[in-house]
Amino acid sequence: MAHSPGVTTVTTEQSDILALARAQVLENGEGLSEAQVLEVLRLPDSVLEELLSLAHEVRMRWCGPEVEVEGIISLKTGGCPEDCHFCSQSGLFDSPVRAAWLDVPMLVEAAKQTAKTGATEFCIVAAVRGPDERLMAQVAAGIAAIKDELDINIACSLGMLTPEQAEALAAMGVHRYNHNLETARSHFAQVVSTHTWEERWETLRLVREAGMEVCCGGIVGMGESLAQRAEFAGQLAALGPDEVPLNFLNPRPGTPFGELEPMSGPDALRAVAAFRLALPRAILRFAGGREITLGDLGARRGLLGGVNAVIVGNYLTTLGRPAEADIDLLGELAMPLKALNDTL
């Protein structure tokens, strides 16, 4: 790649970590350690393109060119008793988001619209600490109705589970369960006070035990240090999830993190590449906040920098780019949409 001569000198240490990542991750499929991820996160902008292209090579080598496309829907919005400081759906903050429930016909319609884009994943989300009987019944009815009408993989994200609930969801045909660790263990108490990182970890263990795929990621840009961002990547690698959704903080009005600055584009891209190098085989999904942090070019930059899954259309409470824009981009990049058969 072209560097502007004299602008930045790349030190031996910087080229070393990239050379090492090439040998260790690209050739051998062995993810970077926490300390190595930290070195990557500290790389200067002058080697960002080189880093992104390595992350892209790693993704192509260990995951292939397919992109997994997902739509998400909020079944129960707002009024959550937890206090995750980034979240507009907590009932404890003065956020403009009001509580709402979606009915089953609307849920089925949302699944149909998602499938129409070519997406193979449909994730049903509820803003709760964990599901109660009413929510479990609503989810069961919703999944049955969706499965009646169309073929799509169904994932859920309903908070912390009991062993019985994990079993019940698996029996309903939920193929993947999302539960984010959100941030590094050492930073978690700065982000959430109503439950612990360990409680989240326990739910992830139950999800795997029940036979569902594990989807676990978090949000970067919540005031964590680079060392903590690397720590988080290391903790995710230790968990070994099937999918890692990576969000960038989108500061929500009325929340404790409402006044934080969104991450810079280069920092966000460095995080994407670093997470790919820590997790060479995971489905790495661009989740929320990419529009704010990276603008219109974000999808392209991410998909050429380690990302191999996207959320199309809107998010839970905010709006995304038009789904067609992302689907067209995949065509342009010659990245086929992952087919349903591949994932069943």
Partner: peptide, 26 residues
């Protein structure tokens, strides 16, 4: 914000509205 956010308050009376975002609309 409006570019990536559905309306949150009624433009006629400023009450907080119940908003449902779906994959393609709201």
């Amino acid at each position: 914000r409006r570019e990536l956010e559905p309306p949150r308050y009624c433009a006629e009376c400023a009450r907080r509205m119940v908003v449902q975002v779906t994959p393609m609309g709201w």
